[in-house]
């Protein structure tokens, strides 16, 4: 692993840190194969140049990319597939379900630009249902890192223990949340980033940063909110989550997903299974939403999932 990439001051794009990590490993392990469906990255140029035998351009053919990966994986290869989030999920869902899930093959799906990451590209590029559709696949792990270090640690694990995994990468640079200790909490599946006493806000990926912003505003208003980064959506650590949330009276969930079957659904299923009942406000994309223009944060405002809305939700729970 390239430790410099983490200790450097400026955060790198998640895709670059992930590809660099895979490239480092692939230099030693010749069974690692990286396949892209015509999505690039600055770091990918090194992979293509240095490891041409382990790099495949599948063309804009996500379906074939997945089928191809199955044959390679059945032949002992450790395969990483890389594409824009909407196209490595819904576009080839049939292949992922019928082939990868059916045979539980050790293939890692790397999705770039989850949620509203491709903001201006609008509806065809929104990935507002990937959590719901991917977590319902048999035997899959669903991971959603929130910064460079968590993305690196999750990738390192995917290299060390190949399995059927879906890793959700943010398209934009993310502020650093972890400083050298993430790998020690990886197995727990979530991180209790900020401990509070009144209510908890739970999110993943980019929305963790929003939750942290809301937490600060709430603090100024005298409300003590905790923040949880639930980076492993499946298998979800239901028991650990239930124990942590038992310290709180209320829960706010935040996501860039259609609420039906998405992130908060996963959280509430886990809590229900653990017999945890608590008042909850769910912020997410409402069914019937319209395609609107704007950047990611503007879209959050338009869809009612921005920081002020998180604060409102928290206050309404407390004041209810």
């Amino acid at each position: 692993m390239d430790t410099n990439s983490i200790s450097a001051n400026k955060p790198k794009l998640m895709r670059d840190t992930v590809i660099d990590t895979i490239c480092d490993a692939a230099e030693i392990d010749k069974d690692i194969i990286f396949i892209t469906a015509d999505l690039g990255a600055a770091s990918l140029d090194r992979f293509r140049r240095d490891l041409p035998d382990q790099f495949i351009h599948a063309g804009i053919s996500e379906q074939n990319m997945v089928d191809l990966a199955s044959g390679l994986a059945l032949s002992g290869k450790k395969v990483f597939l890389y594409a824009m989030a909407p196209f490595i999920t819904a576009r080839c869902y049939e292949q992922i379900k019928s082939v990868l899930a059916s045979m539980n093959l050790p293939v890692t799906l790397l999705a770039v630009g989850v949620g509203l990451g491709y903001d201006h590209a609008t509806l065809t590029h929104f990935t507002t249902e990937d959590v719901a559709c991917m977590r319902s696949l048999n035997g899959i792990e669903v991971l959603s890192p929130s910064d460079e270090e968590s993305a690196t640690a999750i990738t390192t694990e995917a290299i060390k223990n190949p399995a059927f995994r879906y890793i959700r990468l943010e398209r934009q640079k993310q502020e650093r949340l972890y400083h050298g200790h993430f790998s020690t909490v990886l197995g727990q599946g979530f991180v209790h980033l900020v401990k509070g006493s009144d209510l908890a806000i739970i999110a993943c990926g980019y929305m963790v940063h929003k939750a942290l912003g809301a937490q600060k505003i709430l603090e100024e208003r005298g409300v003590s909110a905790g923040v949880i980064d639930l980076f492993r959506i499946k298998p979800i650590n239901a028991k650990g989550l239930a124990e942590t949330l038992s310290q709180y009276a209320y829960l706010v969930t935040v996501e860039e997903q259609i609420l039906e079957g998405g992130f908060s659904s996963a959280v509430l299923e886990a809590l229900a299974d653990q017999n945890v009942m608590m008042p909850v406000k769910r912020l997410g994309i409402r069914d019937g939403f319209n395609v609107l223009n704007g950047d990611r944060d503007q879209l959050h405002e338009l869809y009612g999932i921005d920081m002020p809305k998180i604060v409102d939700a928290a206050l309404s729970l407390k004041e209810a």
Binding site: I56, Q63, N64, M65, V66, D67, L68, A69, S70, G71, L72, A73, L74, S75, G76, K77, E94, Q95, S98, V99, S102, M103
Partner: peptide, 20 residues
């Protein structure tokens, strides 16, 4: 060698075997 039933997967899967 591999699952089938849903159609259209064999050429890609077979390409994976052949490439490996």
């Amino acid at each position: 060698e591999g699952i089938s039933g849903s159609l259209g997967h064999g050429v890609g899967m077979g390409s994976g075997f052949a490439l490996a």
